[in-house]
């Protein structure tokens, strides 16, 4: 679920940080720039892994800061397709089951990827797997908030999110852009062994 991504950046170090060692200052800048951010088609950045090379630093006329070309590797959360992960249920609604890993929340299991047959219980606000006991009866298995569940990653999608434009210019636009989710995963639990962990305990 975690990978290493090699990246290259021109890192700008402000004069006020010249008292720090160059490496430390760069590590700080890179983490400030990337930690907890989604990079398009790469994944959710977690933390700097290491710096692989540092080129000579240079200055640009009219700017007191130093600029350094740096090659580095970053730890990125990006599960591969078909990977099996364990998460917790964050919420349930008609659109499916929302799953969280704690550090990553945008995982949705749509209704057609739940165990069959499942239905949404309006009063409990939870999805229920109507497990067929084999003797004509059925056993309701609830999916409650906070339950641990095992799921398979089936799809991912990245959405470009631009920084909001100047305030006041596009009022109605800004409300739509803030709702965009940059990195979305889709999961499924419609196979034996997937779903709430306790379903398969014995």
């Amino acid at each position: 679920m975690f990978i290493l991504t090699e990246m290259k950046n021109v890192t700008r170090i402000l004069p006020e940080n010249f008292n720090m060692k160059l490496n430390d200052a760069i590590v700080r800048e890179l983490n400030k720039k990337l930690a907890n951010k989604v990079v398009l088609n790469v994944g959710l950045c977690i933390a700097l892994f290491d710096i692989t090379s540092l080129k000579e630093s240079f200055i640009i006329p009219g700017d007191g800061a130093s600029h350094t070309i740096v090659n580095f590797r970053y730890i990125v959360f990006r599960p591969f397709m078909e990977e099996i992960l364990v998460g917790k249920i964050r919420s349930c609604n008609e659109n499916g089951v929302h799953v969280t890993l704690g550090f990553f929340d945008d995982i949705l299991i749509p209704p057609n990827a739940l165990q069959h047959p499942s239905k949404f219980n309006e009063t409990e606000q939870a999805w229920v797997w109507e497990y067929d006991t084999g003797d004509g009866g059925k056993h309701d298995l609830f999916m409650d908030i906070g339950d641990c569940l095992r799921f398979r990653v089936t799809a991912e999608s990245f959405t470009e999110t631009c920084p909001p434009g100047p305030s006041g210019l596009q009022e109605e636009d800004s409300t739509t852009t803030t709702n965009k989710i940059p990195y979305n995963l889709t999961g499924s639990i419609n196979e034996p062994g997937l779903g709430i962990l306790s379903w398969w305990d014995n």
Binding site: L4, T5, E6, M7, K8, N41, V42, N71, R78
Partner: peptide, 12 residues
């Protein structure tokens, strides 16, 4: 910023 290799290794 430039992505040199988006998946250079998997980490456990």
């Amino acid at each position: 910023m430039e992505i040199v290799n988006s998946n250079s290794a998997s980490l456990s």
